[in-house]
């Protein structure tokens, strides 16, 4: 679905953000894109959507070169950015104007999603709260039946019920021809939803694994004494002791939180790399 080969990109000549980046994302998954601020997550999403042009390298998204922005490509992707602007129209008018551009747009599905998010149809878009607008865009994007939904910080500004609706809807909407790329800092909202995990750091993909591999290779445990840093991958203080991430030599299955995984990967890139290569 997405194939990136030797991609290079820079905003200015002094600092290159991506240098020879390679990434292949098959269809049918909910990819979680994690990274610190300035790691290049939003830039990568914009390149995939054809909103930024790479300086070098090849990129293929759903069979198209994003830079061309052909209508056949644009109807297969839907991007919900962290900040957005909605026209001053009511919802019906927006749907009437925009939905015909998506040939597989499903109106009854849109109604179902709107109902799940408790969004009143007759409301003017500009009168909605930030969270409602975001939910509406998500509902619209899902109803387009596009192959790739790109969500940048989708749970920012959502209330607690909306976050659980969001997880439920996304989990049900994925199928073998459709993928999601979710970029977020709100890792707790994405627990049990995103898989595989992609971690981007300073323009490099430092980690790209699914949960099956992660639980095969890593194990989480708690201990009261501070561990020896050489014997573990990562540790951090927690209530009553230390949370420790170690190599899973005993084949014990544990579920690691995304936050802990992220900290472990960013905190000890070399060891993680070594472990997952073997």
């Amino acid at each position: 679905m997405i194939k990136i080969e030797n991609l290079s990109f820079s905003y200015n000549q002094n600092r290159q953000l991506f240098n020879q980046l390679n990434l292949t994302l098959p269809a049918g998954n909910i990819y979680g894109l994690l990274g610190k601020n300035g790691a290049g997550k939003s830039t990568l999403l914009k390149i995939i959507s054809g909103l930024l042009f790479p300086k070098n390298g090849n990129i293929d998204v759903v069979g198209f070169l994003p830079k061309d922005r052909f209508p056949q490509f644009l109807r297969e992707i839907y991007l919900v950015t962290e900040e957005f602007n909605l026209p001053s129209l009511n919802m019906d008018c927006f749907v009437r104007l925009y939905s015909p551009f998506y040939p597989r747009f499903n109106h009854s599905l849109l109604n179902d999603y709107l109902y799940e998010f408790r969004i009143p149809r007759e409301q003017k878009l500009s009168a909605m709260s930030y969270g409602q607008k975001k939910n509406f865009l998500l509902c619209f994007g899902l109803a387009t039946d596009c192959k790739l939904l790109i969500l940048d910080e989708p749970t920012n500004g959502l209330d607690i019920p909306s976050k659980s609706h969001f997880r439920k809807i996304i989990a049900n909407a994925v199928h073998e021809e459709r993928s999601f790329i979710i970029s977020t800092h709100q890792v707790r909202d994405m627990e049990n939803l995103i898989d595989p995990i992609i971690i981007l750091d300073e323009g490099e993909i430092i980690f790209f694994q699914d949960y099956e591999q992660i639980s095969k290779k890593l194990v989480v445990s708690k201990q009261t004494e501070m561990p020896d840093s050489d014997s573990v991958v990562y540790y951090e203080p927690s209530l009553g002791g230390y949370t420790v991430v170690k190599e899973n030599t005993d084949r014990i299955e544990t579920r690691m939180s995304l936050e802990l995984l992220f900290n472990a990967v960013v905190g000890n890139k070399e060891k993680i790399n070594e472990l997952f290569k073997s």
């Binding site: 054809g50 922005r69 052909f70 209508p71 644009l74 992707i77 950015t81 602007n85 551009f101 998506y102």
Partner: peptide
């Protein structure tokens, strides 16, 4: 922000 919508609208340049 409006540029995102305009450029990703499925119509050709």
């Amino acid at each position: 922000l409006r540029r995102y919508n305009y450029l990703t609208l499925p119509a050709s340049t």
